[in-house]
Design a protein around this nucleic acid. Structure first.
Lengths: 150, 150
DNA sequence: TTCAGTGCAAAAACTTTGCAGGAGG
DNA sequence: CCTCCTGCAAAGTTTTTGCACTGAA
């Protein structure tokens, strides 16, 4: 189980700060890494709860924030007025294409973007901490129907 | 007062659909165009209310959505779990650089981005309806302090 | 006349906070 | 032991919804 490497990484991150190492935090990490695709904080909390975990909502929210800080997760926002997370563990950076009809999210990588980000920040005097790039549209394939659960 | 041109544009948009032309909708439009910078829906509602307007919250939310549809406003999301709007009337498209320390938002234009968006959508089979590109970081100038009200 | 639009208030969805007890270092 | 962390529930924010009435076409 290679998740242990992620555990180790998280542990190091926690130690570096004044954060304590607790079983609840690793439980959240496990559920997050195992989740297929993007998820909201409450969504993950509910899933854990339905699996008889008794980690509280507050702890889930708190831990997801920590996991985003140490980049084991990526925190995103697809314009739904809520935060979304996805595993960033062992993945290369990518951006997203969101279908407004069926809700599908496709990933893409475009190396030119990183350079643009640097150039712009340079020109305007910013220390970059990150960026978000989302393209919105509609799948051109036939089986894209209004079905936001996809 | 060149706002009348915006009124005209909105009127045409409303007629095209099954939407009715109401004074409340133009009142929201006026407040929105006159607002300096980005604003949230509730923020605008509160501002209107404090100016003795009696347009309801529901109407403000509804109208802002319409104004975004016809592109008189741009709807944005800067990762705060709430929608932000800004006037798009007579402005050229641009993207944003957001300072996570002082909250400042700078605009930039980078022509290469449009091409990237097209290429990616083309390759993955999407009809583009829009995109969002935000860079997050910290101002390098001295007077950038923790002050989210900026 | 008709039905979309409106105001109002309640509810919903997501997130944060306060507090008292519990456990990591 | 000292705090940070936790669970729980309450409160906070932003947005949506239900309903009866109003007014645009």
């Amino acid at each position: 189980m290679e998740l242990n490497l992620a555990h180790e990484e998280f542990k190091q991150f926690l130690k570096k700060g004044t954060h304590r190492i607790t079983p609840e935090r690793f439980e959240v990490l496990d559920y997050a890494l195992e989740y297929d695709g993007h998820f909201g904080a409450d969504e993950l909390y509910l899933k854990m709860k339905s699996n008889n975990s008794n980690v509280s909502r507050a702890t889930v929210y708190n831990t997801l924030e920590l996991l985003a800080s140490c980049e084991l997760l990526a925190k995103r926002n697809f314009g739904e007025n809520k935060a979304r997370y996805e595993s960033n563990y062992g993945k290369k950076t990518h951006d997203h294409l969101i279908c407004l009809t069926c809700g599908a999210i496709k990933e893409f990588s475009e190396p030119k973007i990183a350079k643009i980000v640097e150039d712009v920040a340079d020109k305007l005097g910013f220390d970059i901490s990150g960026y978000s790039f989302n393209i919105f549209g509609k799948c051109t394939n036939a089986n894209c129907k209004t079905n936001k659960n996809a």
